[in-house]
Design a protein around this nucleic acid. Structure first.
Lengths: 117, 117
DNA sequence: CATTTATATGCTCCTAAAAGAATATACTTG
DNA sequence: CAAGTATATTCTTTTAGGAGCATATAAATG
């Protein structure tokens, strides 16, 4: 993928937040909806964009779709994920998302364990 | 600057090429026009965008405008410039730009030395 | 097999941003 | 101070992408 295209994928806060959450591990679509407090269509479309460009993969588990970061992304993507992990520490919204993720985890342990099995 | 906004600045190949050239040192607008083979308006606008968002600074020398990377960019920007330097090594267009920059340098030593004085 | 739950897709609307033409500004030099 | 050179700005057109509604698909469950 061309570098400019990669940046355009990263030029949307929702997708950045999704990627940042994925750095924590695999997640279901419903988790993103809840943590990001965004409608299902929006989440689904952004996940599709990440998947179609090789940043994430998805697999079905029962009738949940589980998304995770691509196992061996190209070098430029790896660099960007590192940068995201680092920069997210300094922006409040990403920290807020982490907190909300943990709450969701607690509320929905059964789904989480389903996700990761 | 928000991370998504930063990426949107980097989501344009012309701006990426400009930034990559700036990693080599200060340059005049006319250099970008020649190396990138792009019209003056286009270059000028993209430089303005980089300047307005704190990635580059400009100063006048005679009637040339000399652009250079900001001295102390915010951390996220620094990370991105590093990533750019690295990723540009693997994309042909940035290497081509470097070659053309050196040709221009040879042809226009008087301007270059003016730029850097 | 009908219904519910979870997710994806098609379509439309709307905004942002890129490109180019024309013009303006700033400085230099004769 | 007139003319030339280098760069910036304004205005318009065009295009890409995000949002949301409606609908489709896929699996689970009674």
């Amino acid at each position: 993928m061309k570098l400019a295209k990669l940046h355009s994928l990263l030029a949307d806060e929702t997708r950045l937040r999704i990627l940042h959450l994925l750095l924590q591990g695999p997640l279901c679509v419903c988790h993103f909806q809840e943590v990001l407090d965004a409608p299902q269509v929006k989440i689904s479309k952004h996940l599709a964009a990440l998947r179609e460009h090789g940043l994430a993969t998805s697999r079905r588990h029962k009738n949940w779709m589980i998304y995770e970061l691509a196992a061996k992304p190209e070098a430029a993507v790896q660099l960007q994920l590192k940068a995201l992990a680092q920069t997210a520490q300094t922006e409040a919204i990403y920290q807020r998302d982490l907190k909300r993720l943990h709450k969701v985890n607690n509320k929905a342990d059964e789904i989480i364990s389903a996700c990761c099995s």
